[in-house]
Simulated assay, not measured.
Amino acid sequence: MAAQNWFITGINSGFGREMTEQLLARGDRVAGTVRTPGSVDDLVARYGEALRVARADVTNADQLRAAADDAATAFGRIDVVVVNAGYGLFGAAEEFTDEQIEHQIDTNLLGSIRTVRAVLPHLRAQGSGRIIQISSVAGLTANAGASIYHASKWGVEGFAEALAREVASFGIEVTLVEPGGARTSFSHSSLRLAEPMSAYDGTPAAFVRALRGGNVPIPGDPVRMVTRVIDSADERPAPPRLVLGSDAYAGITTQLQSRLDQLLPQQKSAATTDFTDAESPQGVR
């Protein structure tokens, strides 16, 4: 198989770091973004020109565009884009500051949108490409104590689904990745907790406070998860969604079934708000 050119955001830790290491080891080329210069110097020393590193924060559209332009120029084309950078903000909705909420949405949701917009001109011009959006089981489920994180990931899900329909005619495919818990550095470097309020002690929202201490069982092997994501880039057609982890599968299927159970009994009542055949709609409101 011919070597591929990858553009990945957030390669300094977690999935991004593991993916970069696996890809370089097999002979692919990676253009990756980091916020902290020097954080992947060991990989640069080992792989040389096969790894291009750009300092870019996903909250900065100009930096992302410059990184994408540099990757396309240096490599000639970008085969696969992995929208990976992000973090988790947990706590009850009332516990967050306004600044914490805005930064979570700015990073996870708007950062994903900015990344895609930065690479799309290159993929569209070359008439092909794969966009892999790292979402989360949290993009299809909802639990107390994660309302703002869910808001960011549910937004990513809607954006990526619509995007897939927009760019299909240009030969570009999109995959949403839905990982469950993985034993990465997420619980330390990529997890932030709100300042707890005593009012939420003992409530369902308080369970997330145990995340900081690592007291929550985590079944996912990040090495196997990343390998599965890399393998998916060669699947034709692209899988619309890629579920990683038994916990993710169980959580997603349970909540989707619950929503169907809520909706199906409303089929007849929903139709009572339609115009009748005898009426003539005058337009869309």
Rank of each mutant, 00 (worst) to 15 (best):
E173H: 12
R55E: 14
K153L: 05
A2T: 15
V284P: 06
D41G: 15
R26D: 12
A271D: 11
A74R: 12
E157T: 04
L163N: 02
P239W: 10
S190I: 02
N108G: 08
T73F: 03
T33P: 08
I131K: 10
V243R: 00
A85H: 03
I252M: 13
F96H: 14
A233F: 04
S135M: 00
A85Q: 10
S269D: 12
Q262D: 14
T20G: 04
M225Y: 12
L176Y: 01
V80S: 12
A56Q: 06
N84K: 06
A25C: 06
D247Y: 05
F207L: 09
D106L: 04
G27N: 06
R209I: 00
G245H: 02
S112A: 14
I78A: 07
N5D: 07
P265Y: 04
G220W: 03
E178M: 03
A85I: 02
P219L: 11
G214I: 00
E235V: 15
S136H: 13
P219H: 01
D277K: 09
N5A: 12
Q104R: 02
S280C: 07
V34G: 04
F275H: 14
Y149A: 06
N84E: 12
Q63M: 11
M225Q: 09
A68N: 04
A118C: 01
E279Y: 08
N215M: 10
F186E: 09
P281A: 10
Q126G: 02
A206Y: 05
D274P: 07
A92I: 02
Q266I: 09
I230H: 09
G10L: 03
S112M: 13
S136N: 10
G145K: 12
L163Q: 07
V243T: 14
L176T: 15
Q133P: 01
Q266S: 11
A45H: 09
F275L: 09
D41P: 02
F186I: 13
R285W: 14
A151F: 05
R236D: 14
I132Q: 11
I230V: 15
G88C: 00
E21G: 03
